[in-house]
């Protein structure tokens, strides 16, 4: 790479001339043959989502779990929450604990980042189904348990590929 950095600058460019009849015919042919090529050799990046699930990247800001033993009840997480999803309540006299409302949570991860004792952490799950809205308000018991993914899904790892863009490599679980 050239070491002499020229820095950012403007560069004037021009739109090409209008195409003549022959050029048009050529570009029609090119576009059609590219379409045909893709038809013959499809290059798919569809992830068949509910059946296949991606392994989320390391550090993905997924659902949040509370480590009850570590928590010191400082309420910082509830204060920082921009969506007011986290609330403190008295788990026992003189023992404040946070609970979360996933109806509001926007997964910004502020609460995890502000906790002074690392009592909150993300788990790589971001999609759970709730039967009603009340279930989305977690109590201390559900909030301290790591949510589980359904068993029968195929897990795939997302790999960035030079040829295909994204490739999904199955994770051998069985």
């Amino acid at each position: 790479m050239a070491e002499t950095s020229a820095g950012p600058r403007y560069s004037e460019r021009n739109v090409e001339e209008r195409m003549g009849l022959l050029d048009k015919a050529k570009m029609h042919a090119k576009a059609l043959s590219l379409g045909m090529l893709r038809l013959a050799r499809p290059q798919r990046i569809t992830l068949r989502y509910p059946l296949e699930r991606p392994v989320l990247s390391e550090g993905y800001r997924g659902m949040i779990v509370l480590n009850n033993d570590k928590c010191i009840g400082c309420s910082l997480c509830a204060r920082v929450c921009p969506a007011a999803a986290m609330k403190m309540f008295n788990a026992a006299p003189k023992k404040l604990r946070p609970v979360i409302n996933y109806e509001r949570c926007i997964f910004c991860g502020y609460c995890v980042d502000i906790c002074p004792v690392e009592a909150l952490y993300h788990v790589p799950v971001h999609d759970l189904v709730f039967e009603n809205r009340d279930d989305m308000v977690f109590d201390l018991e559900t909030f301290t348990k790591e949510p589980e993914e359904p068993e029968h899904v195929r897990k795939v790892r997302v790999v960035i590929d030079e040829e295909k863009g994204l490739r999904y490599v199955p994770v051998n679980s069985e």
Binding site: A2, S5, G7, P8, R9, Y10, S11, E12, R13, V15
Partner: peptide, 28 residues
């Protein structure tokens, strides 16, 4: 382009061009 007019972040240290077209139509 603010990246040039009032550089911020690491832009002033990088080497790139900001294209300018004169035509002003949808194609440009």
């Amino acid at each position: 382009d603010v990246r040039i007019e009032e550089p911020y972040a690491a832009y002033p240290e990088l080497d790139f061009e900001v294209p300018i077209y004169k035509e002003g139509d949808a194609l440009a």
